[in-house]
């Protein structure tokens, strides 16, 4: 009567049809790209001491690009089900709106 785990695996229509294996070459390529972006962001920051606003925006754009690469390739999202992708983008979207709405208060304070 006890509830034992069953070995039958559940498959739904939306599940990825076959297992995608990311090759070592692909992963190393992404890694090289990530390191290059890190170098770029450090250089921009060290060389342009006077462009504070410029540097914040670029730093965030570069960081987001890196994060996207990690999510899509290292975390395999690119090959995962559509439902998961939608969820991830909605969550990032919601978080962005939270930041924007809060910033709105501070930017418009008298």
């Amino acid at each position: 009567m006890s509830k034992q785990e069953n070995e039958a695996t559940r498959v739904l229509d939306d599940d990825p049809k076959e297992q995608h294996i990311t090759s070592f070459g692909n992963l190393v390529g992404i890694w090289v790209g990530l390191l290059l972006l890190t170098v770029v962001t450090v250089l921009i920051s060290v060389l342009h001491k006077n462009f504070i606003a410029f540097s914040v925006v670029t730093a965030l754009v570069i960081a987001s690009t890196k994060a996207l690469a990690v999510i899509n390739h290292f975390m395999h999202l690119k090959y995962d089900s559509r439902v998961l992708k939608v969820m991830v983008y909605i969550v990032f979207g919601v978080f962005t709106v939270l930041i924007v709405l809060t910033a709105l208060d501070y930017f418009t304070r008298a």
């Binding site: 709106v97 709405l101 709105l104 208060d105 418009t108 008298a110």
Partner: peptide
């Protein structure tokens, strides 16, 4: 519902636009 929290703070000193 995520984006309406500011209505608890109308008298707190939040900016008028917000």
């Amino acid at each position: 519902g995520y984006f309406v929290w500011g209505h608890h703070m109308f008298t707190s000193g939040m900016s008028g636009d917000a």
